[in-house]
Amino acid sequence: MTEPGRSIAARYYDGLSSASRNEIVTLSAAGLSIGGATPIQAAALNIVEPMGQAFWQIELPDGAMLELDGADGVAVAKALGHRETPIRRWERSLKLALLAIPLLILSVWGASIVAVPVMADLATDMLPRGTDQAIGASSVLVIDRMTSTSTIPSDRRQALRRRFKAMARDIVVDPPPYKLEFRDAPSIGPNAFALPGGTVVATDQMLAILTDDEVVAVLAHELGHVEHRHGVRTVFRSFGLAVLAAAVLGDASTLGNVLTALPVLVTQLSYSRSFEDQADGVALQWLSQPGRSPCDFATGLHKIQVTIDARSGGNSKGATPSWLATHPDTAERIKRFETACQRVKGAIAT
């Protein structure tokens, strides 16, 4: 340890020019003396703790600076009353740094599973429902560009619109100006989707293979998305994930983009699957009311799946692993409604 009176070699920079001067510093009860001059009190010195093993620096009151090599620096700093900061101890200890790895993985995982959804939902709830339409406006344009005017006879469209309206009043607690659009979409195929703001789009290709009851059952699922504002939630969650990815990446942008693209995608898909699950729940509840049947959703979804499989020229099942799918497994979704369907049928039989 540095006993008072010991001489230590240091470099001196006066702050006026870039000259570097070797000096001998001595420590005493009165403070730090440079080259035998009057000691400077410890309180007037600013000790700059190095990062890693760089030199220790001591800023002097007159703007000059002393630089001391590693071991000498530690000794002088300690003698002058400097205590190693906890953050430096943490950064320098291999054990503590390794401990940070599981903590890091846990906190990133927790942030993407809990914090991002919770904060996105908070933001969604703070936003009045009226703004959903503005958020959906750009996706309406995209859909318009990808599709063309429906060729479904107008009386069938009218009938479906009437049933949709009645159903929307049931399902959506605080109804925005919801509406049902029909579009011819050969490139999309049999499908329906809900846009933020209450617009539900059904493709001609879906209407071609489903009965009206089945179409209404599928639209019930889409109204589940509308009711829970999944579109807006997705926007906020994507934004939250982007912020999280930016925090993890820091300055490693170009290389990091490659590395984080997959985890971000996988997380987004898990959000999407949970939304589909929730929308299925809404549809199931509505279809389980007297006078309606969950069977319609099961048969409708089955028909859509068969057509999509035929289009892709094979068995689409197994082509994408479950963690890379936007929707939960179709067979499982159908089974959920089948079970409810059997129950309703049983109830009618007895």
């Binding site: 990062m51 890693g52 093993q53 760089a54 953050i87 943490w90 950064e91 320098r92 200890s93 291999l94 503590l96 740094a97 940070a100 790895i101 903590l103 890091l104 906190s107 990133v108 942030a111 912020v243 999280l244 925090a247 993890v248 820091g250």
Partner: peptide
């Protein structure tokens, strides 16, 4: 340049953890 990966590793991982835990404030 005298930096080493081992030395920077500790600084980097602590930075990362504290940045995420403090919702970016520590950045």
């Amino acid at each position: 340049f005298h930096g080493t990966g081992r030395e920077y590793f500790g600084i980097w991982i602590v930075n990362l953890l504290l940045t995420i835990v403090t919702v970016g404030i520590y950045s």
